[in-house]
Design a protein around this nucleic acid. Structure first.
Lengths: 194, 194
DNA sequence: ATGAATTCTTGCCATTTGGCAAGAAATGAA
DNA sequence: TTCATTTCTTGCCAAATGGCAAGAATTCAT
């Protein structure tokens, strides 16, 4: 495996020059996550800042009743890590598990900080990742308190149709904040009408 | 007005030494926001990174029907700015308005970046602010898709009792993702039972 | 102090979502 | 292929939340 995709990813942000992108990518190691394997386990400190080149991941937390609440779906081209755990060096609230076989590139906390320290361009990149994650979460929050479950379902279907292939509907239901029973009914309604 | 509170705030993060805190605080300017005044207007670029020393603020967006959806409440001791607008230099999605007369300290985008550039300690601080905001939003998201409106209401009442003095219930309702009618009924239920 | 505007509550009823359980369908392991 | 497990759907009914409108209570400007 070679790092061209990773290098191109950094360049495409328009924050990082080609030479810096190469230098940064040199610090990353190849990472394979087989289907159903955990990339991160709740309670552990997240120490991998992952660029996903191929595959799909799901993040989930366990609520008090022991049910899994899906908090995110991730696909190729994304940076994936548990923000709070990674930067605060505290136990993760959630798990991240592979929905399919995955390939990507990782760097650890120390390496990341070293790069941040030496390369201002990469600091900008790091910030942009945080800002992007924050904005997306904020949009999701607004949608959740504003829109009906049916609307949120349709939006998810538009935005990330691929995940429906890899994940049972109950995971999508918990991500949407409803039960699998309700999701089943919503799907019936939606398909009936179109 | 003097900057002691601001300097102490930086020091208390345990990320910044006293001399750096003084140096950083020197870049901030005093800011007064009178009750009902806007600290930020939707569509404008947020160019003030605000430390609030006194008072209360509310952030809200307008949905498609033109209703105000409250997205946040802020009080003294917090850093307040619209993350995406500030860092991406794009128009803000939301408004930030004073619920009471406010006093604080502000710095603009350029000054902030200069400080980030020259003071690694302050970069750490900046990152910690983003990470904290992200974590809190994530917790709120989880609570929203997981808990009933009544539970969320009680949690808000515990966490930020003061805001109830300054804000009409319909704003709290939209923050919780319910109508003012429902909130009124929930309050009735809760008060009846205790 | 007064009148206007806003906020809050309540009744009536509709819609959305949930809980539980049973059976059908799909998936996975051997 | 076969059996066990998991997932998905559906019926029945309950609970949560919404929509609308009217009136009461409160707040605000003058």
């Amino acid at each position: 495996m070679h790092k061209e995709t990773l290098i191109r990813f950094f360049q495409n942000t328009n924050l990082i020059s080609f030479s810096s992108a190469t230098e940064i990518a040199a610090q990353f190691s190849s990472k394979i996550i087989l289907k159903n394997q955990f990339q991160l386990t709740a309670g552990k400190i997240c120490d991998e800042y992952l660029f996903l080149e191929k595959g799909y991941l799901r993040a989930f937390a366990n609520n008090t009743e022991g049910n899994e609440i899906t908090t995110g779906f991730y696909s190729q081209g994304q940076i994936i890590f548990e923000v709070s755990s990674f930067f605060n060096r505290t136990g993760s609230q959630e798990n991240i598990q592979a929905l399919t076989d995955c390939e990507g590139w990782v760097i650890n906390y120390e390496q990341l900080n070293n790069l941040f320290h030496t390369l201002p361009e990469f600091r900008e990149f790091g910030r942009s990742i945080l800002v992007k994650g924050y904005s997306e979460l904020k949009n999701r929050m607004l949608s959740t308190i504003t829109e009906s479950a049916e609307v949120r379902y349709k939006q998810l279907l538009m935005a990330k149709p691929e995940i429906f292939q890899y994940v049972p509907l109950k995971n999508i239901a918990s991500y949407l904040g409803i039960t699998d029973t309700s999701l089943s009914r919503i799907r019936k309604e939606v398909s009936k009408r179109k």
